[in-house]
Write a protein that binds this DNA or RNA. Sequence first.
DNA 1: GTAGGGTTAG
Length: 661
Amino acid sequence: MSHSSTLLHFLRHVSFPPDRHLLPSALKSCPARPLARALHAAAAVSGLAEDPFVASSLLHTYLRLGAPGDARSVFDRMPEKSVVGWSALIAGYSARGDAEAAWGLLEQMRSAGVEPNVITWNGLVSGLNQSGRALDAVTALARMHREGFLPDATGVSCALSAVGDVKELSVGEQVHGYVVKAGCRLDACVVTALIDMYGKCGRADEISRVFHESSHMDVTSCNALVAGLSRNAQVSEALLLFREFVSRGVELNVVSWTLIVACCVQNGKDLEAVDLFRKMQSEGIEPNAVTIPCVLPAFANVAALMHGRAAHCFSLRQGFIHDVYVGSALVDMYAKCGKVRDARTIFDAMPSKNVVSWNAMIGGYAMHGEAANAVHLFRLMQNLKQKPDLVTFTCVLGACGQAGLTEDGRRYFHEMQQRHGISPRMEHYACMVTVLGRAGKLDEAYDLINEMPFEPDGCIWGSLLGSCRVYGNVLLAEVAAEKLFELEPENAGNYVLLSNIYASKKMWDGVNRVRDEMKNMGLKKEKGCSWIEIKNKVHTLLAGDNSHPMMTAITEKLNQLAIEMSRLGFAPSTDFVLHDVEEQEKDNILAVHSEKLAVALGLISTSPGTPLRVIKNLRICGDCHEAMKFISCFEGREISVRDTNRFHHFKDGKCSCGDYW
DNA sequence: GTAGGGTTAG
């Protein structure tokens, strides 16, 4: 409804002539400024505009509708300016972020002989907090205290919220002091606000202390707790407390459940998140347009495509599909589940896109090694005047690295700085090391590392080490590995990689030295873990773990495949895989890598020709890579494996990565 | 018939 028709509609239902008792309630429900002005005019004509109640109502209405100028002129005409009028005006200016005007009014009211009360002060603090002037809000609270007013529950709650915004722990502790002095530490709102403040200031220990002291359990304290613990990576504590709220029958809402799901997703507990998402619905809580993009990364991480599709359908039914966050998360989920075409379909249908949407799609192409599509989209986004950001360049440079587009990579790295004024960060240098390393320009990559304006991290050296393996450069590999052993002494993968490089050159001394060092450090290679979704259920397979109920059949299938492989002369082409450190350890001789277990399970559990999608937690090894090529051909299956680095699509004996990984 | 409060994910 337009303003004028609202006005007509309203006037028809208001009896006239206006009177001093009716006008305030009419103003209270007045929805828009033109109507307020009409009522104001009507009041003025009948000489009611200066009635204290009518004037006060006009003042509040104008402030509520964001017309401080009108409010001010009403105020200026008030014959008797009470503390109520002054307080309202001060709150109004603070809420618009005009701290200076608010302070000025406070002075003026005093000069006029009217003293502020607690409500005046709280209005000031609250308004400043609402308008994002957090430091001013805290200053106001401190001044209130200095001038003899002990802040009450309302004041400290607002101030604590402000402290959270600026993350000033020492100020927060000072406000906590007022809480103790004023004796409002058991007030439910104050407890929640304290939890929120300590969470935002990084003090998980204080969150728990405040909560246990009050033992107040309602939906808001639960939400503040989970949000605060999640922010500080205390996922176990968050889960523990959340379950306690549930078991005590506290009525939680969609925000509570979304928070705990998001907490699990952000702290690496994907399967837990999937489970909680299901539980939430069985408890009768409908996911909303925020829940969906929170849970989708969990589906993506464990390749739960069916769950992801269900969330997609749900979003269509509920009308969330046009939400830019939902769309971007779906693009990301489909790409990570191996369905880059489906991702593109969603992307193209999105009615509005932001930089996150573009990054998700470009990153999806990069992950699948489809550099041409990534670059094309990157150009398109610029034609459509969407500005790229840091992440965009990580995706584009990543795509160039995956596909060996060395010159393009160089150009974009340059363009990013010159044309877009974005200084490269660590991840961009890591991408460039891969771009150069992929082309065998190892010395150039090493030079780039030495010219970097900050200390290179493990990713940078890891990228160089990876390229050294491909090109068999032992000398640079040793340099990179030395740095890695310093930076990531606990990361066994670096030792394994160096050992593999020695093995590929038949440098057995080196192999033994690295293996001994690993043993001395007490390091074990991270257990390989793969996920495969079969008929709506995600199966987790661990290397060397025989606990899967189908293990006998899996082993039988793998043996059969091994026999076929050697019969058809499909032997691993590289040396190093036979001398993997892992395989030299007696315990591990029989360990089969998890992706092979997953594929074998997929082969025996699905009908012929069904594509298989596997996700694994480490990089795929050379032996498995060869085996997958063979299986795709021998069994006539499309197999996709997403490792920590990228997607490998195996079909007809070939891999989409072109044997570069 | 007139002024005041906290939690929410990408």
